[in-house]
Write a protein that binds this DNA or RNA. Structure first.
Lengths: 212, 212
DNA sequence: GCCGCGATGTATCGGACCGATACATCGCAC
DNA sequence: GTGCGATGTATCGGTCCGATACATCGCGGC
């Protein structure tokens, strides 16, 4: 999951660890609290070892060989490699069952702008099925085993059931939107500078559903 | 978290691993999918080593020394010890910040029937504060940094914000309920048999809020 | 009669991720 | 001129998951 998110973010612009964490937190704020350095840095090292990202020099090589003492350990900027982009595409393509749990779905959804429409549809439907299953489970418990559970546990189930029903409706809307081609996709993705080299789908224009 | 849930469940009745997992899944179905054996069994061993649970013999000692071959490895039933109950009470009392994240809160809430009212209130308010913070973060992103993010990411944030607002309202209701003494607490907790030895609060009678 | 198969049941292993902790630099307010 | 919060990199122990292995039991189909 972290691997996927990092590769996705670094395609927008090179970043160092701290920045990466902030962006990740902003982008995934709806899903999870904040990713930990204890997983971020090891993952970065792993991705680098695999050749999917590389370190980019911070100061543009004009340093006159001076340091050696004070050992000046500046920030380490990472950028994605061609292999990394390939890897990211591959991770999108093989969206498996783990893509449908809460975190997995959220992270994939956050990068839907870099995902082709067919895969978007597949993921949305997989997620819907999973939530429907959870919903049925909760209904079963609330129906059959209600008297075995205390009032607080029941209230928890009710709240969970409510959230499930709500998410299914949300997913239905998104699926209908995808099918009709009016996906909520925004044109400009990359950072400032106007270079446009991502494989995002053709932008069919802003479409927002109005809330009644 | 798992430790807490196991100690809580075993206070209702002795159980073996498989059963424990099923009950856990039923009770926490609204929170998480299903707990893994890869964490359940090691945790059971840890709790046993700490003296908080013990193995209870499955067949009531009438086995006539026969086995030794076929090695008949039957199910292992665990029951909580007095120290275990103490540990559980202690875990409730020291409900810290980790109690307010999604999983932690859900698990604690599921055992509110074994939690005193003051602690229930403290946990509900802590959770509310945490969700309010997340909500503010999402509002910030949707307000200030909206143009930096693509339409899918924005939609994710909107959905998350909606869920936050809904949960805050839910928590407000629960808090008001607690304050007025009309907590949704059910009298009989333990398994069949009528033994009543838990420290649950006095049952003020079923109180259900009607949905308009 | 026996064969498969799904439910029941215990267990381990590698890997992902978290929370706490440590430590260093920079700018700025007091 | 000094403390302090933001920026920044890094490790360690521990929790939990997912895959996998393996054994038993009851039941229906052939």
């Amino acid at each position: 999951m972290l691997e996927f998110a990092i590769l996705g973010l670094l395609q927008e612009s090179p970043m160092h660890g701290y920045e990466l964490r902030k962006e990740l937190t902003a982008k995934l704020g709806a899903i999870r609290a904040a990713i930990s350095y204890g997983s971020l840095y090891p993952t970065l090292r792993r991705l680098q070892a695999a050749g999917w990202i590389t370190e980019a020099a911070e100061t543009p090589a004009t340093a006159e060989e001076v340091p050696a003492l004070t050992s000046r350990r500046g920030r380490v900027v990472y950028k994605i490699t061609a292999e990394g982009k390939e890897r990211f595409a591959q991770l999108i393509a093989q969206a498996g069952p783990e893509t449908y749990d809460d975190t997995g779905f959220g992270v994939h959804f956050a990068f839907f702008a870099r995902t082709d429409q067919a895969t978007r549809l597949r993921i949305l439907e997989g997620r819907r099925r999973k939530i429907e299953e959870r919903r049925e489970g909760l209904r079963d418990v609330l129906g059959r085993a209600a008297e075995r559970l205390d009032a607080y546990t029941l209230e928890l189930q009710r709240h969970g059931l409510d959230a499930c029903e709500r998410e299914v409706r949300w997913l239905e809307e998104l699926i209908a939107n995808e099918r009709s081609g009016r996906a909520p996709t925004v044109p400009n993705i990359g950072t400032a500078g106007g270079r446009r080299e991502d494989n995002s789908p053709p932008p069919p224009g802003e479409t927002r559903k109005e809330r009644p």
